[in-house]
Design a protein around this nucleic acid. Structure first.
Length: 212
DNA sequence: CTGACGATTCACT
DNA sequence: GTGAATCGTCAGC
């Protein structure tokens, strides 16, 4: 887990997010790099786990049945902004808003593999040494990267919080679709294969028995 | 205004 | 495996 300088990183253009297939975008975000630059501190990691939330017909989504509230309003924005909300009063969960205005699609980033700023991540999380728990699970990702609910609505083209790509890609055989985590309340929709993970990657959340 | 609860994590048995 | 932590959000009164 040596630090890598972002010289070859290219910020993903807004049109990437504004396409209409949130499940496809969710899969394509696997292998991309989530970057924050807060107070001059660079932290970044490669995305290894995502979940798609597919708009008003998806019972697991906050925007199910076209529900519009102060909190969910940002999901209806044009794609390419952040949706960060507080869960269990403790955890800040980071999502990427996709699709065009008034179509509330979003993608939850559930795990990353640290690439840069591990020392800063350790400082933010209060952990003593870098391990797989540093950025495993959506709450830990936000904590390590310093993402807060106040960043909701932030434009992913900004220099403080964005997603980049480099020349690295995962082979398609290493990306697996599974049902989403913690959405049992969603009935039938809880079984939809909207979660994408990198095969055998230790940072992917859930039981290790999931490894194939 | 009030009460119930969550796209989770961690410590503990 | 079980339960506590902890607070903004939202539906209901």
């Amino acid at each position: 887990m040596k630090d890598v300088m972002p010289g070859s990183w290219r910020k993903i253009p807004k049109r990437f997010y504004q396409r209409d297939d949130v499940v496809l975008i969710s899969k394509e975000l696997i292998g991309k790099i989530l970057v924050t630059l807060f107070e001059g501190k660079l932290t970044a990691g490669r995305i290894v786990e995502t979940e798609a939330y597919n708009g008003i017909d998806d019972k697991a989504s906050h925007a199910w049945n076209n529900r519009r509230t102060n909190r969910t309003e940002v999901m209806y924005a044009n794609g390419g902004v952040a949706y960060v909300y507080l869960c269990y009063g403790i955890h800040h969960l980071f999502n990427v808003v996709t699709n065009i205005r008034d179509i509330p699609n979003a993608i939850l980033i559930r795990a990353i593999e640290p690439l840069a700023g591990v020392d800063v991540m350790l400082q933010r999380t209060g952990k003593l040494k870098a391990g797989i728990d540093l950025t495993r699970g959506p709450g830990n990702v936000s904590k390590a990267l310093g993402i807060h609910t106040s960043h909701t609505g932030s434009n992913l083209n900004d220099d403080t919080l964005y997603i980049a790509e480099d020349d690295f890609t995962y082979n398609d055989d290493f990306i697996i679709a599974t049902p989403r985590i913690g959405v049992d309340y969603a009935g039938e929709d809880a079984f939809l294969p909207y979660r994408f993970i990198v095969k055998n990657n230790l940072y992917v959340s859930g039981k290790k028995t999931n490894l194939l």
